[in-house]
Design a protein around this nucleic acid. Sequence first.
DNA 1: AACTGCACCAACCGCACTAGC
DNA 2: CGCTAGTGCGGTTGGTGCAGT
Length: 252
Amino acid sequence: MGRAPCCDKEKVKRGPWSPDEDATLKSYLATHGTVGNWIALPKKAGLKRCGKSCRLRWLNYLRPDIKHGGFTEEEDAIIFTLYSQMGSRWSAIASKLPGRTDNDVKNYWNTKLKKKILTGIVKLKPMTENDNTIPSTPSLTQSSNPQNSEINFPASQNQHSPPSPLPNMLDNKVDKIHDAVVSEIGTSNKSIINPLVSISQDSSSIAIQDQAGDESMESFMDFGFGFPHDDVNDLNCFPEWVDFSYADIKPN
DNA sequence: AACTGCACCAACCGCACTAGC
DNA sequence: CGCTAGTGCGGTTGGTGCAGT
C-alpha cells in the first residue's frame, strides 16, 4: 500500500498558474508570511491548488528575490565546480547562487551545461592528486579556442565529503565499462581478456567484444545521445559521472 | 504557409526525511 | 518507539514557442 496522496487530485487544479492565482497566493503570503502549513494554505487562501503546488510556485517563481533571466559565466563556473563536488544536489548548489532556485539550476544544467560538456565546449579537466586544492573560486579557463573552456575539478574530496560523483576521467576505462555491462546484464564477461571497444558513428553507443572476435562475448551499450566522437573514440573524455545505469545495455 | 523537430522551463510525481504526537 | 502529516528534494513530463525545412 502506497503513501496517501498529499491532496485530492480530483478536486485541485493542475497545470500552469494564472495571473489571478499568482496574485492570490502572493497577497496571502504577503499578509500571512511563508511560515506555516503549506497543505492548509490553499484552502485558507481560496486557491483550488495542492499545497505542494503552491509551495513550488512560490519558491520557484513568485518569491521576490528570484532572479529571472540568463545565467552569467560566473554562475556557470560555480555550478560546474559545485556539481563536481557534490553531484546533483541542486538545492545545495542553488543555495550558493543568490536568486536562483534548485529547479532553475537543474533545468539550466540539463538544457545547457550538460551539452557544453558533451560537445566539448567545456572540457572537464581533472586535477591530479598533487593538485587537489579545492579552488575558493571556480576556475573556468578559456582554451585557445575562444569557444572552448576548461573547468578544473578537484581530483578527490577530503575524507569527510561524499565521494565525488563527477569529474575524474576514466583511469581504467575499459574496466569501468566492463563493470557497467556486468552489472546491467547480470553476467560476467571477465572472459573478455582483451576487450575491443568500438564507438558507433554517432557516438551514441559502445560495443565491447573480445579481440578474439567471439561474438557471444560481445556487449552493446546504447546511450541515447552522442558524445563528441573524437573524444570518445580514444576514451579520453569519459567523465566518471556518466551514469551507465542510463545506458541501454544488452548482450548482442 | 504548413509542418516538424527541438529547446526550454514550469509543473508534477514520488520518495526520503523530519517533527510532532 | 512507531505512526502520520508535512516538507524538501531530485527526476521526469508536458506544454509552448521558435527555428529549420
